[in-house]
Design a protein around this nucleic acid. Structure first.
Length: 180
DNA sequence: TCCGTATTGAACT
DNA sequence: AGTTCAATACGGA
């Protein structure tokens, strides 16, 4: 992964997500801060929003490219939050080990409204015994929702875990029409 | 090397 | 239907 250098907020009906981009693609998507009160100087927090210098035209082009990616992220995120399959995703630039990347790749193959167990993912990547490790990789997913780790349930059909909180996982699944 | 995990299935109450 | 437990792969410290 290239080092991320742009951070952009993404407002949705579910709150304001935060996204980060490298020169290669989306590196991170984080859930809205749940804290009630919003800090006063919060807006100044966005200082990394802009690239230091616009003088260089290649940088300007990159800036434009990232804005395009951000629009794709926004559309894709909102689609999934509404329980629909996105038409298009931004390019992803995910930091992780080879094992984690293979898990995340397998997660992306689960269609909207369908689920798999941790064990099934383990099988899908050819490591049938790495069930717990699959759970670990899900928890390390830097781009939740877009890489749909919420569609992974425990083998007995129970909810399993979720870094964004079980409530959110249930809500996402419910919108996709999945009954637990 | 040791420890914690978003697991699993079997063997027990 | 709930609890305990061992097997197990991986990643971080």
């Amino acid at each position: 992964m290239k080092t991320p250098f742009v951070e952009l907020p993404l407002k949705t009906d579910d709150g304001e997500f935060t996204t980060r981009y490298s020169e290669t693609g989306l590196t991170e998507l984080s859930f809205p801060i749940t804290s009630r009160r919003r800090r006063r100087g919060d807006e100044s927090q966005n200082s990394i929003n802009s690239i230091e210098s616009d003088r260089d035209s290649s940088r300007r082009l990159l800036q434009i490219k990232i804005r395009g990616w951000h629009r794709l992220t926004e559309a894709a995120l909102k689609a999934i939050l509404a329980g629909r399959q996105p038409n298009k995703f931004p390019p992803l630039d995910l930091a992780g080990t080879a094992f984690q990347k293979s898990v995340w790749h397998a997660l992306r193959k689960i269609p909207v409204g369908r689920t798999k167990s941790y064990g099934e993912i383990a099988q899908a990547i050819g490591r049938p015994k790495a069930v717990r490790a699959v759970g670990g990789a899900c928890g390390a997913n830097p781009v939740p929702v877009l890489v749909p780790c919420h569609r992974v349930l425990a083998a007995n059909g129970k909810i399993g875990g979720f870094s964004g909180g079980l409530e959110r996982k249930r809500r996402l699944l419910a919108r996709e029409g999945v009954k637990i």
